[in-house]
Design a protein around this nucleic acid. Structure first.
Length: 840
RNA sequence: GCCGGAGUGGCGGAACUGGCAGACGCGCACGACUCAAAAUCGUGUACCUUCGGGUAUGUGGGUUCGACUCCCACCUUCGGCACCA
């Protein structure tokens, strides 16, 4: 035997820091990942959510993108023409805040960050097609964001109105309803509690699409996302009914329980309801004004807390309930919200808990209309509202009708009666609000609208797009749009009449930019439209979209809305932009907490890449957790992946550069007498079962178990090395192992592929084909149970008959032990799997 | 309060349509190699045990020949929604 120190020098160590940049440069030079339209090949559009230009990729970006890349790479190996484009969400507040804090221009800051993040994305070794890169703050990009805004405007889907809007006092801008989160109503970005302001703002009529957005037909999206969107849209079926005030004003109310209309004993208007002032007679004005002023001052958090006291004030006037001509008092109370329904409700204290509390507090009548089964109660004897099933009473035409669990029947009957008699009609309401897109900040796409004193709101003409964002602007956190403070920018002339006119000085919500970026990727340099229809026809829709679940009710609703609107303008086709959605979980700090600078538990991917290499990072992130769940980072567990890649390195290199194996599997030593043929069959069986498993796991985004299986394969190959190295089966196994690892660890596999003198590039090879014949077992192990407990195992042939399987089980020695002295009552046979013997 | 997801060894996590719970990895223990260590390789590793076996997938019930998996109730935890009429 050679002296060991001499042998060690023969081993060339696995050095990711050397091979990774080498292959990245080569792939780039050869344009290996260029995705061009090719009608002869099936396409696959793999999209991962574009990162914001914060300056650095964090571990979460790696966790989202590297597995998405691995999945896309495998699709290439399956024969698809795959497009996997990179880009940057580059407009937004942090750039401007950096400008305020450090005096750096937002543009300078942003593009410096883009530079760094490009470098980081390249270090990932992902199959990005860089020729498709899109940056949302680029004028060539936002020209089309503005153009799309104008399309929405021309089709009546963008409108401007004065509204009471959510305002973040820290970000100094208004926010969309979706961007106010939690019961504390904080800003989605900075977590500052929002306040209300009355402002004239631009909205997109997303509510026009509420009904269609509720349909997820043909979408392979996670249920929790579909549920979150469904809840957010908040469809309610009911009826709308107009009461008539003493002054003759119709007051429209919406109710989901029209069957309880006969139980209405009062009417409640929100303090902001437009009729409040008009309805209030002189004697009540002071009290009402005082209450409205008080309610307006109260924060939304206080007003919307469910355990609130039901405050309110009598308006001094009455209204007629059209169903029974009863005259009921009109109250003003802030438990009714102007932002939902009509801002007015009927009070049915007997059958609505909120109305019940209000009636008790203010001594209003309680009229029972649903009699609980088997009881005789009256409104006065109720201690809380009766919401369960029962029978209609005191309700004229509905008397005697059963009220079922779902209330469907009685509600339908009530609506039917209302429509027959002309007293009201069935109605549907949504919780969804129109999307507020005006932002009072600088670093965004300017809203391309001019306000002319004569012609009103006029779009900037097409040939003047992009409407450039001026660079000489002062960024003051003043709450005023910086563009408004610019001395000349807003001043222009009306495109229609040439008279002096003013530009809109707000910029657009950056979610607008990201609502269509998947379309710009199709043709980022195209200047005849937002995207090239030729590219659209080939690539769209997106086949898989990956990203965080936190976008459920923001980006993922907006982008669906956009697609549907553009479809109605004839620009896109089909109902949905993204067919399959998969969400990754979150990588936590080593302490199991969310990573944050303040906790000091942040793992920097650049540092990890320097230490371990990109392949190890990629494989570790895919191996450590179920992708959809995530979990804590562990610098211990990553060692398992480090070892694995080193083992594969040694395995795939020729044996004469290796240390001789110094351990022997005793079972295998015994088998050396056995023919190599038989061992080769064993290896091929293992391999082909493995190919099937890894393929299945890749299809399901189950990267952790795919890697487990690949580790299993490398373990098996290593065991058999002393006996099979150089045989056809051995080479097939190593080749297949490298091919299946290639999407996960692209660099090491390319290097080993080259060293085994196989054809460049491994990333242009086909995924190994599963051969069922090779995978077939020669014999199977049946589990033998006695009374449901595992007692023995027996080897039988694969095509064993039921009778033979049972006989073999009964004959199993360890089973016999438990059968002695007992009568066999029944034998359950699960083919290929198990025999369960039941005794009497 | 309502709607979702998740509770499995010391740890990260496996288990396809109900059929051998704990794959794969970490950690740990022992062994080989080494003067020694690291690296590498091999063996073992849920718990209890009188070594026959018994008990275990958050808790308590149920269905079934058989339950991590299905049903009911509850507990913990993480998200989402919430005076939405």
């Amino acid at each position: 035997m050679q002296p060991s120190n001499l042998t060690t020098t023969l081993i060339e160590k696995y050095q990711p820091q050397v091979i990774e940049p080498k292959w990245q440069a080569r792939w780039n030079a050869d344009q290996v990942y260029r995705a061009a339209v090719d009608p002869d090949r099936p396409k696959y559009y793999a999209l991962t959510m574009l990162p914001y230009t914060s300056g650095n990729l964090h571990i979460g970006h790696w966790y989202a993108m590297a597995p998405s890349d691995a999945h896309a790479r495998r699709q290439r190996m399956l024969g698809y023409n795959v497009m996997f484009p990179p880009g940057f969400d580059a407009f937004g507040l942090p750039a401007e805040n950096a400008a305020i804090a450090h005096g750096t221009h937002p543009k300078t800051w942003t593009y410096a960050n883009v530079e760094n993040m490009r470098r980081q994305l390249r270090s990932m070794g992902a199959a990005w097609d860089w020729q498709r890169e899109a940056i949302t703050c680029d004028p060539h990009y936002y020209r089309w964001t503005q153009w799309l805004f104008i399309q929405l405007f021309n089709h009546g889907l963008a409108y401007k109105k004065m509204a009471r809007v959510d305002w973040c006092p820290s970000c100094n801008t208004s926010l969309a309803r979706e961007q106010v989160i939690g019961e504390n109503r904080v800003c989605e970005r900075c977590k500052t509690p929002v306040i209300r302001k009355n402002l004239e703002q631009w909205f997109f009529r997303i509510t026009n699409y509420a009904e269609e957005l509720l349909s997820f037909d043909g979408l392979d999206w996670p249920d929790p996302i579909k549920t979150a969107q469904t809840n957010w849209i908040g469809r309610s079926r009911g009826a709308s009914v107009a009461f008539t005030s003493d002054q003759g004003d119709p007051i429209e109310i919406f109710t989901t329980r029209p069957d309880t209309l006969w139980g209405a004993t009062f009417l409640v208007l929100a303090p902001e309801h437009p009729l409040v002032e008009k309805l209030t007679p002189p004697g009540f004005q002071h009290a009402v004004e005082t209450y409205v002023a008080w309610a307006t001052r109260r924060t939304d958090v206080l007003r919307e807390a469910t355990d609130n006291e039901k405050t309110g004030v009598f308006s001094g006037t009455y209204a007629i309930n059209p169903v029974n001509d009863q005259r009921v008092p009109i109250w003003i109370a802030d438990y009714v919200l102007m932002s939902y329904g009509t801002g007015a409700v009927m009070g049915v204290p007997a059958h609505d808990q909120r109305d019940f509390e209000f009636a008790k507090k203010h001594n209003l009548a309680i009229r029972l209309v649903v009699q609980p089964p088997g009881q005789t109660v009256t409104g006065d004897s109720l201690t809380k509202a009766w919401l369960q099933e029962g029978q209609m009473v005191n309700s004229g035409p509905l008397d005697g009708l059963p009220v079922g669990k779902g209330k469907g029947e009685s509600v339908r009957a009530a609506i039917h009666w209302l429509e027959q008699t002309g007293n009201g009609m069935g109605a549907v309401r949504y919780r969804l609000h129109d999307w507020l897109i005006s932002r009072q900040r600088y670093w965004g796409a300017p809203i391309p609208i001019i306000e002319c004193p004569t012609h009103g709101l006029v779009p900037v003409p097409d040939d003047e797009l992009p409407l450039l964002l001026p660079e000489d602007v002062a960024w003051l956190p003043s709450g005023q749009s910086p563009l408004k403070l610019h001395p000349t920018w807003a001043q222009t002339t009306c495109p229609k009449c040439g008279q002096p006119a003013l530009r809109d000085t707000d910029t657009m919500d950056t979610f607008m930019c990201s609502s269509w970026y998947h379309l710009r990727y199709l043709s980022p340099h195209y200047d005849q439209g937002a995207f090239d229809p030729h590219e659209y026809d080939y690539w769209m829709p997106v086949d898989t979209y990956t990203g965080g679940a936190e976008h459920a009710t923001m980006h993922l609703i907006y982008t669906r809305f956009f697609h549907k609107a553009l479809r109605d303008f004839g620009l896109t086709q089909g109902a949905e932009p993204m067919l399959k959605l998969r969400n990754q979980g979150q990588v936590l700090g080593p302490d199991g907490q969310r990573m944050s600078k303040s906790r000091g538990n942040v793992i920097d991917p650049d540092e990890q890449v320097r230490r371990y290499g990109a392949d190890t990072m990629r494989a570790y992130l895919m191996f450590a957790y179920r992708w959809s769940e995530g979990g804590p980072w562990s610098s211990k567990n990553i060692q398992g992946v480090v070892r694995w890649l080193n083992r594969v390195w040694r395995l795939a290199l020729p044996a004469d550069t290796q240390l001789p194996p110094n351990g022997q599997d005793s079972q295998l030593v015994a088998q050396t007498a056995d023919s190599s043929d038989r061992l080769q069959r064993r290896l091929r069986r293992f391999l082909h079962q493995n190919i099937q498993k890894v393929s299945h796991d890749f299809d399901g985004f189950e990267f952790n178990t795919a890697i487990s299986a690949l580790m299993d394969l490398s373990n098996e190959v290593q065991k058999l090395r002393p006996h099979l190295e150089g045989t056809a089966a051995w080479d097939e196994a190593i080749t297949s192992l490298l091919l299946m690892m290639a999407p996960i660890t692209p660099h090491i596999t390319e290097e080993l592929w080259a060293r085994r003198a196989l054809r460049y590039s491994i990333h242009q090879q086909s995924w190994p084909t599963y051969d069922p014949a090779a995978a077939a077992e020669e014999s199977i192990t049946l589990v033998v149970q006695v009374n449901g407990k595992v007692r023995d195992h027996v080897q039988v042939s694969v095509d064993v008959s039921e009778a033979d399987a049972k006989a073999a089980a009964l004959a199993a020695p360890r089973a016999q032990k438990y059968l002695a002295g007992h009568e066999v009552r029944e034998i359950i046979h699960v083919p290929q799997t198990l025999v369960n013997i039941l005794t009497g």
